[in-house]
Amino acid sequence: MATLHTAKQVATAFQREYAKTPAKLKVLDAFSGLAIATALLQFVYAVLIGSFPFNAFLAGFFCCIGAFVLSVCLRMQVDPEDMSGKTERAFTEYALAMCVLFLAALNYVG
């Protein structure tokens, strides 16, 4: 394996390989990215403007983190390289877990 020296080479290699990923997983990756970006934005907002009311901050922030974690879990289950083959069942569990997460967050946000 040739040694990759520069970050640019790493990026192009990543893009080339990532193009092979199925569209299903790309959708999940986009959602995970959105969740983590929202979490970061809220954190910056809390630092700059203030975390009052703190319960709302916690609910919003951890809702995003939770959604990110659940999405990653789903992605691990439906990845064709090591999948068990039960995509529908995995998605049902994921959807249920997300509903519970949103219910908890909405109750806690105040």
Binding site: A23, F31, T38, L41, C64, F91, M98, F102, G110
Partner: peptide, 27 residues
Amino acid sequence: QAYPYYGSIFSLMAAFLATGAAFLYTK
């Protein structure tokens, strides 16, 4: 002051619904 926090949850719910639909109907 807490509107961004409320908004984040609802936007995430909307994104979740869109993602779910796209996930189910993408081959």
